[in-house]
């Protein structure tokens, strides 16, 4: 579904992605791990066209992802994103955050979009908070609203950019639980994370990135349990 071929990306003189090749299949959950600065988030942002890239190609369901093309807007409604710092719209309620895209981008009928939005909040365990503004919610609740917002577009895939890194430790579980339930439903997910437990239990595949390259790739058991590369071992021993 997502195909990345020889992807190169630089910020000025700094080359942050040095030839990435990988694919994410339909219904697959792929976790990207690696030290900060290894290019994980940049890679994720390229997939959504939030960053441009200089070399190689990303395609989504056969369509080229090009941040400069007008087609990127339609593509973004099919691949949505959940951010590290939630980025909820602070001037809108939880439900309005969720229905913003369906009503104003996809032009769905308001009543249907609201019903769907309520169902998603319900699924996230937040039906009672539909009328609350983001600053009245805890971090974990905000991130669950953000997941509902991403789901409301009825996307074919969701990108998660360190979705639990900004949360207090006791709130991490509720967000991971919500993500796990999406994975169980067969959602295609590309997840940048430091949660090795989540990667181990939920991911179909784990990619270890180092210095702009994918150094190791395989099942969670292989990459996390029995890494081939010394750099992967170093990273895992530091994080676990």
């Amino acid at each position: 579904m997502i195909t990345i071929r020889d992807l190169h990306k630089r910020f000025g003189d700094l080359e942050v992605l040095k030839g990435i090749d990988t694919t994410v299949g339909k219904g697959e959950v792929v976790c990207l791990i690696g030290a900060s600065g290894s290019g994980k988030s940049t890679l994720l942002r390229c997939v959504n066209g939030l960053e441009t890239y200089e070399g190689g190609e990303i395609t989504f369901a056969g369509e080229k992802v090009d941040a400069r093309s007008p087609a990127i807007r339609a593509l973004r409604t099919r691949v949505t994103m959940v951010f590290q710092r939630f980025n909820l719209f602070p001037h809108r309620t939880a439900l309005e955050n969720v229905t913003e895209g369906p009503i104003h981008v996809k032009r769905e009928p308001v009543a249907a979009a609201r019903d769907h939005g309520m169902a998603l909040l319900e699924r996230m365990g937040l039906a009672a908070k539909a009328g609350a503004y983001p600053d009245q919610l805890s971090g974990g609740q905000q991130q669950r609203v953000a997941i509902a917002r991403a789901l409301a577009m009825r996307p074919e895939a969701i990108l998660f950019d360190e979705p639990t890194s900004a949360l207090d430790p006791e709130l991490v579980g509720e967000v991971l639980g919500a993500m796990r339930s999406l994975a169980d439903d067969g959602m295609t997910m590309l997840v940048v994370t430091h949660e090795m437990g989540f990667a181990r239990e939920v991911a179909d595949r784990v990619l270890f990135m180092h210095d702009g390259r994918i150094l190791e790739e395989g099942t969670p058991e292989a990459v996390l349990g029995n890494p081939r590369e010394s750099r992967t071992r170093d990273f895992l021993s530091r994080i676990l």
């Binding site: 939030l50 807007r73 409604t77 994103m81 951010f83 719209f89 981008v105 577009m153």
Partner: peptide, 25 residues
């Protein structure tokens, strides 16, 4: 800046992003 990205990530165009997300804030 995260607001811009959130708006973009649900497929909003520039004008819509300004009107519905950035200017009200």
């Amino acid at each position: 800046k995260g607001q811009l990205e959130a708006a973009q990530s649900i497929g909003m165009g520039w004008g819509q992003m300004m009107r519905r997300v950035i200017l009200p804030q």
